[in-house]
Design a protein around this nucleic acid. Structure first.
Lengths: 158, 158
DNA sequence: CCGATGTTGTTCAAATTTTAATAGCGTGCT
DNA sequence: AGCACGCTATTAAAATTTGAACAACATCGG
């Protein structure tokens, strides 16, 4: 096992990590300032708004958000308190529950989206040309697919 | 103000966000399993080990880690409890303090690094060709520089 | 030198996230 | 049917992170 990275790769890695962190921080701040939502709130709203019946099982939602189950429980409870989503027991499975988008939630999303998308463009997308977009998509789509399978939230053996 | 993203860009954005989240989670788990360190611990150790005198001002460290001041205070206190770093008052500035790498901290880094780097290669780098590395570096170096200036931790007006 | 102001870190409380149980319910086997 | 097991989501407690308020010191202008 080779235990190092070439200089080029180390540089790439560090640039990626640091810039991503800064970007996330910035987007979070922008979103909070313009709409009072967190990124997590926003992502939940987006996923629900796109789902059939504007509702999703907790587990499905957690998987897509890359959230632990308990984190999602907390997140949804919080949004429920604020009236952005409702919680309903799942008809097909007595154990489960679904998060359902409320009218207020949809409205909040509609109000927040323009600002947020503007922010994403401003801080990232406007600075990238088409070739860069293509690379970004290629690299991270592949990465996401590869990471999706092998476990992580739970500990594998190794 | 155009308030949307082209489909291509939206796809790129979502792939990037989700895969990055999965990657971070995976690396964190791997690192924790093999060395008992968090990513934050590891980054602190790396930065200190590279700094002249293996010491850095709190503010400098916070800036590079993209941590809030209070978060860094907590982080360093935790590492101090575990013997990985020490805290010293700053000679030039009576207000400040420095975090200093300890022998144990350096050892912990040396032990953790091979596993962590292997993990980074495994999950990300080995899957990228040289052209992709170049794009990654280019995109995120530019992004990092651009985001570095304009404020975020504190709220600007807008 | 003195006072006004800005910095640097820390502290405290509140909010969030993690981790380790746990309750309830499905599934499959007998 | 009856039971062993696994899955789903929640809960409780501990750990972390945020955000506001502060204390101590530096810096600058008078």
């Amino acid at each position: 096992m080779t235990e190092s990275l070439s200089n080029d790769r180390l540089t790439a890695w560090r640039a990626y990590i640091e810039a991503s962190q800064r970007l996330l921080t910035r987007l979070e701040d922008d979103l909070r300032d313009t709409s009072g939502l967190s990124l997590a709130d926003y992502h939940v709203l987006v996923l629900l708004s796109e789902a059939p019946g504007q509702r999703l099982r907790m587990g499905e939602l957690a998987g897509r958000l890359v959230f632990s189950p308990s984190r999602l429980t907390y997140q949804i409870s919080s949004m429920q308190r604020r009236g952005l989503v409702a919680r309903q027991p799942c008809p097909q499975d007595g154990r489960g529950s679904e998060a359902v988008l409320t009218a207020a939630g949809l409205l909040a999303l509609r109000e927040a989206a323009p600002h947020h998308l503007h922010s994403v463009r401003m801080h990232l997308m406007d600075d990238l040309d088409d070739a860069e977009i293509a690379f970004l998509t290629r690299i991270f789509t592949r990465l996401g697919q590869r990471l999706h399978g092998t476990a992580s939230p739970a500990h594998s053996d190794r």
